[in-house]
């Protein structure tokens, strides 16, 4: 009944998935973005594309980088037909989204993003613009390649994606990203300490005291950026009195 999707169809789906966050809303979260992506292939998957879209017009929420994996698997499941489905597709999507959201958040927010940003800060401290450009190019290449791979992987595996992403292999990749981010974070702290040390001992003491105070504030859940705004006139006033 239905023809297999061509690589060009998957590319169209992927291009639309890049803007999945545009229509993020509280009621359905990423549902409109996902429907928009499915719409690019719906006519090839079903004789009734509208019925296919209506089936998926429900709540959808996961890490944006994991959306292509789930959408890829949905495309495969729809292509194979729902008659032999082991569980309702809505339940499958919910399970896949939950599993991938946790992994995706830890990988991106806890690993790759801090890694890129701390390396960028170190490059910027040394006014190394080429380093900044290289970081942004590498990060985006990895991001886009990861999303393209995710869509192909999901389309190849169909129902099997949840098992693939809850195994130890994925956890090892996430841990490696966290380790690299921690290493880069340590390097950033040392670079800042060295530069402050080169300025004066007073600045080293100020950096240490401010780090301690900021650490306590972050631990207590306070908005440190707002505290910094309030501190500006105070610090300037103290300095004017001292000088």
């Amino acid at each position: 009944m239905s023809a297999r999707l061509a690589p060009s169809d998957l590319r169209r789906v992927l291009a639309r998935l890049l803007f999945v966050q545009a229509t993020l809303n509280r009621r359905g979260m990423q549902n409109i973005g996902v429907l928009h992506a499915l719409d690019a292939a719906a006519a090839k998957l079903s004789r009734e594309p509208l019925a296919l879209l209506s089936r998926h017009n429900d709540h959808f929420n996961t890490n944006p980088n994991a959306v292509p994996i789930v959408v890829g698997s949905v495309l495969r499941i729809e292509e194979d037909g729902l008659a032999t489905a082991p569980v309702p597709i809505a339940r499958f999507k919910q399970a896949a989204c939950s599993a991938l959201a946790a992994t995706g958040d830890v990988l991106m927010v806890g690993g790759l993003k801090p890694l890129a940003l701390t390396l960028a800060v170190v490059s910027a401290i040394y006014s190394f613009s080429t380093g900044l450009v290289a970081i942004v190019v590498l990060y985006n290449a990895a991001l886009l390649a990861g999303r393209a791979w995710g869509l192909r992987f999901g389309y190849a595996r169909g129902w099997g994606i949840v098992d693939a992403f809850t195994g130890p292999r994925v956890q090892r990749v996430v841990m490696l990203a966290r380790i690299l981010a921690a290493f880069a974070g340590g390097a950033m702290v040392a670079v800042m300490a060295r530069r402050t040390f080169a300025a004066s001992w007073a600045d080293v003491a100020l950096l240490a005291a401010a780090t301690l105070a900021a650490g306590i504030a972050i631990k207590r859940g306070l908005n440190v950026a707002r505290i910094a705004i309030v501190l500006f006139p105070l610090v300037v006033l103290v300095a004017m009195l001292v000088k």
């Binding site: 340590g186 910094a228 501190l231």
Partner: peptide, 18 residues
């Protein structure tokens, strides 16, 4: 001084996160 103090937020965030 204030610039040094604001930069310290980043140091504290990294130490806390990792």
């Amino acid at each position: 001084w204030w610039l040094v103090a604001v930069s310290a937020i980043g140091v504290a965030a990294v130490v806390r996160a990792f």
